[in-house]
């Protein structure tokens, strides 16, 4: 029917802008939206209730400090609900991507003195992945503002992957950043990897990476890809992709929201300006 065809073209004009203004504006979250919990260390009674309920062991209370590994955190707020003193608070902090695994470990502030030695131990515990700063800058120079991205599901629950799909809807519309999802690793600059790196998929994952032209970048998307998430310790997979692929940027979350994925991609392209 001609009217329908016409409607299809006129609809966008009638409805105006559907696309979010992220990152120029902060992510449009609701009060309930869960982000990384924040500790008010002065109010903490060190009961350990938070660590006891955490489903992934992301919180560690040691004699010399409290630490939260954002890389394992599901942003579930279970620790916030369990905290007897209100020291742990709900936040909407979701822009958590970093270049190094160790940067994801948040250390509690005094009253516990956090000494260099203890922090060093935390860093050793978290498998340190290579610092890609120099490489990313080189790639930025070479690739300019456009990133061609290939998705690789290495055994996820499909949550991260659906958020990646959401990047392509008119609200998030990631193509406005010059980011394009491509069909083949041969066309890709970046591999966005979700999942724990299952043993059944490992061979195909490595071959996908090897099929990419150099320079090539890897992003670990979500708690599973960073450290195994809820599936850590299984016979069926690795505890994250880092044992197999070199991650240049890590994006926490379970799953990371589309805005968090955008932040990670911008960080990768050296185009992320931290919010002041």
């Amino acid at each position: 029917m001609p009217f329908d065809v016409l409607d299809r073209y006129l609809r966008p004009l009638r409805h105006g802008r559907a696309t979010s203004r992220y990152p120029a504006e902060a992510p449009d979250l609701s009060p309930a939206s869960r982000g990384l919990p924040a500790l008010d260390a002065a109010a903490c009674d060190r009961s350990g209730s938070c660590a006891a309920v955490c489903p992934t062991g992301a919180i560690k209370l040691e004699s010399d400090g409290w630490r939260l590994d954002a890389g394992s955190c599901l942003l579930c707020d279970a620790c916030v609900a369990a905290c007897p003193t209100g020291a742990l608070g709900h936040t909407g902090e979701i822009e958590l991507a970093t270049r190094r695994r160790s940067d994801l470990v948040v250390l509690g502030e005094p009253p516990w003195a956090v000494e260099g030695g203890a922090a060093g131990k935390a860093l050793a515990e978290a498998r340190a992945l290579a610092d890609a700063n120099a490489l990313a800058t080189a790639i930025d120079r070479r690739l300019g503002r456009s990133l061609h991205v290939r998705h690789l599901d290495a055994g996820s629950c499909n949550g991260c992957d659906w958020e990646m799909s959401a990047l392509l809807n008119p609200y998030h519309d990631v193509t406005r950043f010059g980011v394009d999802f491509v069909a083949s690793p041969r066309h890709a600059d970046v591999l966005l990897v979700t999942g724990t790196m299952t043993r059944n998929l490992e061979e195909a994952a490595v071959r996908t990476y090897e099929a990419m032209p150099e320079p090539r970048l890897v992003v670990a998307v979500g708690a599973c890809a960073i450290g195994g998430g809820v599936f850590a310790g299984s016979y069926a997979g690795r505890d994250g992709i880092g044992e197999v692929l070199p991650a240049d940027v890590l994006i926490p979350g379970c799953p990371p929201r589309p805005e968090a994925l955008i932040q990670g991609l911008l960080l990768l392209a050296d185009r992320w300006v931290p919010r002041g």
Partner: peptide
Amino acid sequence: FAHRGLEK
């Protein structure tokens, strides 16, 4: 390929 050993 996405077998993660959930039940175990």
